[in-house]
């Protein structure tokens, strides 16, 4: 548990502390999901999930491995479409529009709902090209100056600008793991999404890089709705306002983070957060 202690100290020392002492005023629901089911071939992975995700809040999805939290996350921008055997049922509404409908253009959906992955995956291109990849394919920038500005603003928001501003043309794969992950966040921010999905964004990082990402998540909350899958209960407690606990493809309990971590209603949640299983 040494690593998490270090991480805790780092965040405690940081000025932007997640305020888990009081409950945040819940924003309007961004996502309303009802009865979401997922099948991989014959195997059912999610059994009817009802969950709301509020605007400008961090929602943490926790649970033991294989409980379906990543699967649920990947439903929110239809990344599961890339897996041929995967079928999604139920309804997922983003601002009142069902994104599972056939006529929804996933290109637009994914521009609104960005994603950051478990392992940093910068493209084998320069830092600059990595960030302007999204704006280019969506035709957001109107010219070179515009693009430069987007790159600078995105890197600035991802807290990476100071470190890389003199080497924008160097390959993104040459950065450290934590910097690569922040580059991936900058890449997601560059298309100006409304929601950012993060699938265990810190699991491949060291405690210091983790602390930086957590600090960043807390800053990003002002402008974006964030859903984060995490294996670290401390991380969920530190960065999120709301927490949902998944187990074996079911949503067991969800609510305000401090309620889940201090007075869980369900016994399984209690057992999981106290480390008795999982």
């Amino acid at each position: 548990m040494d690593m998490t202690n270090v991480a805790t100290e780092m965040t405690d020392a940081a000025p932007h502390l997640p305020s888990h002492g009081h409950s945040q005023a819940a924003g309007e629901p961004k996502f309303v999901t009802r009865g979401v089911t997922v099948h991989y071939g014959e195997k059912q992975a999610l059994f009817g999930i009802d969950l709301d995700i509020n605007t400008n809040e961090v929602t943490a999805l926790i649970g033991p491995s294989g409980c379906g939290k990543s699967t649920y996350l990947r439903c929110l921008n239809r990344m599961n479409d890339t897996i041929p055997i995967c079928r999604v049922g139920g309804s997922i509404e983003l601002d009142g529009e069902n994104i599972l409908a056939k006529e929804v253009d996933v290109v637009h959906l994914r521009a609104r709902v960005g994603m950051v992955f478990q392992k940093p995956n910068p493209f084998p291109k320069s830092i600059y090209e990595n960030v302007c990849y999204g704006p280019r394919i969506h035709g957001i920038a109107s010219g070179k100056d515009d693009l430069d500005e987007i790159v600078e603003r995105s890197l600035e928001r991802a807290g990476l600008w100071k470190e890389v501003k003199d080497r924008l043309m160097e390959p993104g794969t040459g950065l450290s793991g934590g910097q690569q992950q922040r580059l991936c966040i900058a890449r997601a921010i560059a298309v100006d999404p409304e929601v950012i999905l993060m699938d265990e964004p810190c699991s491949a990082l060291d405690p210091i890089a983790t602390a930086k990402i957590e600090e960043l998540i807390d800053e990003l909350r002002e402008n974006y709705t964030i859903v984060i899958v995490t294996h670290s209960m401390q991380q969920a407690a530190r960065v999120s306002q709301r927490t949902a606990f998944f187990h074996l493809g079911d949503l067991i309990e969800h609510g305000d983070t401090d309620q889940i971590f201090t007075k869980p209603k369900n016994e399984k949640t209690q057992d999981y957060i106290t480390g008795r299983f999982g």
Binding site: M79, R110, V116, F117, G134, I137, R187, A188
Partner: peptide, 9 residues
């Protein structure tokens, strides 16, 4: 995945 996640076709 990184590319699809950004909305690329």
């Amino acid at each position: 995945e990184g590319s699809y996640g950004l909305g690329a076709t």
